[in-house]
Simulated assay, not measured.
Amino acid sequence: MADGTRIYSERPKTSAAYATTRDRVETYFDSTATKTWERLTSDAPVSGIRATVRAGRDEMRALIVSSLPDDLRGARILDAGCGTGALAFELAARGAQVVGVDISPQLVEIARKRTPDAVARRVTFSDGDMLDPALGHFDHIVAMDSLIYYTADDIARILGGIAPRLSGKMIFTVAPRTPLLMAFWRLGKLAPRRDRSPVMIPHNPTAIAAKLPVGRLREIRRVKSGFYFSAALEFSA
């Protein structure tokens, strides 16, 4: 069991690009996409395209949960980029003490309102940077679709910096580097800056692994559902 009271003073080193992207993502989800995201992560009817994205996210969430031990009693888990809380609730239902953090205060507020009574004592939510060392030490970390906007260099720095606070493994997702996704990425960069949502960056997992200062990285599996295409990766120190 991890020591949840342990405090660290040094934040993992990232680039100026990391901070810029983080701020852009926060602004996007708090001012533009909150209602859309709230609906997408609910049971409300959505369009055909969004239905495939919802199905893909449901499959990915199940894959992440299945990649961790069945019995999580006594484990302390960080849900980095927790959004509206669905993954945190599933982990808490397996007995984990879950700390959910997201840079969007509005999404965190939705997560708090949706917290089932059955897991309320095992989940806490806060808005802020998932790299904040004051969050402490964790047995496992999950980050579903919360690192998809960052460069391989910053992802490697994040993993290396967080390794001393991780006892078990970190399961996170990236957009896999395929010809189709690369075409969408290039088209997104052509849009006027004021009209852009944060653009996910496709990655080759082996390229991220090559940049790691410590630890090991492996691909678990990819999930493809309509416009949702994501790869689950496992990092261990």
Rank of each mutant, 00 (worst) to 15 (best):
A51G: 05
P198C: 12
V25I: 04
R122V: 02
T84N: 00
A16E: 15
V101D: 00
L147W: 03
I110V: 13
L187I: 13
G160T: 11
R221E: 15
R11I: 04
T20A: 15
E26A: 07
L68A: 14
I220Q: 01
V142A: 00
F89W: 13
A2N: 02
H137G: 01
R94C: 10
S197I: 08
R24S: 14
P213V: 11
R121L: 11
A210C: 11
A207W: 13
A210H: 15
V65R: 10
L87W: 01
S66E: 09
G83T: 01
P45Q: 05
G74K: 02
H140A: 01
G100W: 07
R114V: 06
P12G: 09
G128L: 11
A86N: 09
D79G: 01
I77G: 00
P116D: 13
V142K: 00
T21N: 05
R50V: 08
H203C: 14
S146K: 00
C82R: 00
A33R: 03
Q106K: 15
S42N: 06
D43Y: 09
L78R: 00
D129M: 01
S31F: 11
A2S: 11
A156N: 07
R122M: 08
L180M: 14
M200E: 13
D58Y: 04
P105A: 06
E26F: 01
D58A: 14
F89S: 11
K169Y: 02
G215N: 09
R121K: 15
F235N: 03
D70T: 14
A16P: 08
V101W: 03
R114A: 10
L159D: 01
R73H: 14
A175C: 12
N204F: 09
D145N: 02
T14A: 14
E219I: 10
V99E: 07
L212R: 14
K189I: 11
E234G: 00
P164A: 03
R39Q: 10
I103E: 01
T41C: 04
L40Q: 01
T27R: 07
L63D: 06
R11L: 06
E109V: 06
R6S: 09
P12N: 09
I201M: 14
Y8Q: 07
T41F: 05
A210T: 10
S15P: 02
R6Q: 12
R157P: 04
L187H: 11
L72K: 03
A207F: 12
A51M: 06
R222E: 14
L40P: 05
Y8S: 08
A237D: 07
S104H: 02
V101E: 01
